[in-house]
Design a binder for these strands. Sequence first.
DNA 1: GTCGGCTGGTGCATCGATGCACCAGCTCGA
DNA 2: TCGAGCTGGTGCATCGATGCACCAGCCGAC
Lengths: 346, 346
Amino acid sequence: MTIQQVATEAGVSPSTVSNLLNGRNHRMLPETRQRIERAIDKLGYRPNRAARQLRTGRTTTIGLVVPSVGNPFWGALARHLESAALAEGYHVLLCNSERDPRRERDYIEELWADGVHGVVLCSSLPSLEHVMPLVERGLQLVAFDRTSQAGDPASLVSISVDNAIGSQLATKHLTDLGHRRLAFVSGALASVNRKERYRGFTAALEQVGIDPSTSVRAPVKGDADDFGDVEASELGRAAAAELLALEEPPTGIVAINDMCALGVCRGLRDGGLEVGKDVSVVGFDDIVLADLYAPTLTTVRQPMKEMAAAAFAQLRSRLDDSGPTQGQSLLFRPELIVRESTAAPA
Amino acid sequence: MTIQQVATEAGVSPSTVSNLLNGRNHRMLPETRQRIERAIDKLGYRPNRAARQLRTGRTTTIGLVVPSVGNPFWGALARHLESAALAEGYHVLLCNSERDPRRERDYIEELWADGVHGVVLCSSLPSLEHVMPLVERGLQLVAFDRTSQAGDPASLVSISVDNAIGSQLATKHLTDLGHRRLAFVSGALASVNRKERYRGFTAALEQVGIDPSTSVRAPVKGDADDFGDVEASELGRAAAAELLALEEPPTGIVAINDMCALGVCRGLRDGGLEVGKDVSVVGFDDIVLADLYAPTLTTVRQPMKEMAAAAFAQLRSRLDDSGPTQGQSLLFRPELIVRESTAAPA
DNA sequence: GTCGGCTGGTGCATCGATGCACCAGCTCGA
DNA sequence: TCGAGCTGGTGCATCGATGCACCAGCCGAC
């Protein structure tokens, strides 16, 4: 099924078919147009992507580089991004970096070599230096779940939830319930997002007159590479044990994300406490499991669907219509989802 | 960076470079070979995939069609499949069917039109009729998590865990612990896998002399489309409530999968029972969450990594070396993972 | 000396779509 | 009557890699 056969069937030249296919039909007789469209339908013609890409240098494939789709959070992103892309005829090439910077770079280079000029990058790295060369050659990059940094390329688009506000909402929820001894549980504050979330936490405390430096405990375990997901839950579990050993354990705990929060819940239960009664726990992300756990987890929802759609829209406009090349940051409004894991202190 | 430039740099013709690239170097002087290799390194040359594909009709991309990567189970598959493919220079194109048969077919057709000749299909559908036309044209299909059926195409490869054995292991574990009143919780037994799991359940019961027809209760809710994941947990929760209302509630419960099992746990807790003490629950799949839940979930593990690797290997051998075109079924041995949710009856 | 056979390469048509440059045919104004 | 200007299309070179068919050069044998 080539463009030639369509042209023959419609009684025109391949060029004319190509013109129609590519929207150059301003001065085409409606009748001609219909003949071509009928021929396309009749033959079930589909343009050959390889040929098209070879000729134009463009692709309708975008790359998605995530730490691991094994993690439901990234899985959800992949799903929504793909859905947005599909609606416009784009494909998503999935790449798991496994949080390995080298693999991250290799992937992006290979994508570029394959003609993929737009990539959604979910990097845990504070610097994007390793992909700068390609960005300078024209790679369109959208950083997801990572706010812009001073050293970032000028054309970079960053899409993220407003982490500070999110964690402020979470913390305020606890103080509104009457909690006064609060803890923030996280791995090393190595990423921008984590720092932001911590900032929101302290800000909320200050609003109700609590001095963060006295009543807060923020376990910082492991080194900066400690970004794992299963590990996040183990970290939470260990942190909970530590907190329980304190003279005056906190009654409310804000976790860096849901996996970590689930670990905290486990740790508390290990210590004989009941989450949602003896201690309140808030997570972040609102992964599917949050609503399945026992007790269901109060958390801060990231509007994944909207964020994924925005990521695709940004890429698309820059790839197709050669939209703005100026970088920008999109900060989405997070939403507090109150469930069973939080309550007034006993 | 074209093959031309490499040829010029090495002082040979493009054909010679192409010959080397494609392993036709039997009668090539080692010296020539080295010159070319040096030129490739020096220029950082990468063959253009589009051109290659246009010429040969082949791709190094395989398709993966899953219900939704939002589900950790499929996310894990995607991750492992991609990993196996990457090692051989292949890419994985991710497609979420959202359990929509039409979307499933559309995706596969589009993949085919794009030159993707190998697809791993995770379909909930009992019949593969909708993709038969493409299979007849040469599409290589690996059905994942679905055992072969009588009406399947002859060339089909099926990869699945041995569901009957798995659920037999799960059930035997309960009877070994001393449980005698058992229940099997599942949605409609609409898929082959579900039927198989149920078969394993009854087989294990018969082995210890329990008449399945009397002491078993298998709630069948919703219609055949009821394959959802979040829904699976809700189903489990409702089923647990039903079971508790019985005169003699079961002391051991085998769930169709982990999500369902988690729902059962919730339901039991709703009824004031303690899982792993008052009632034992076994799941299936061993998703990450199984080890995070409270209590941790005894379950049947599917060797995902090995299964994903096998799926890729099968596709690869059929695509590249034009390996066996004869279909086959690979049944993997499941493994019982004992955790906290099971114990001897009170 | 010439022919067969081998070695180590090369020439060229080809895959399918694209889009620039061009062109035939017609209208209209001066 | 001529040519400028417009309409509705078409011709052709091109993207980069492939691999079949071919070829120059050389050796040894008859």
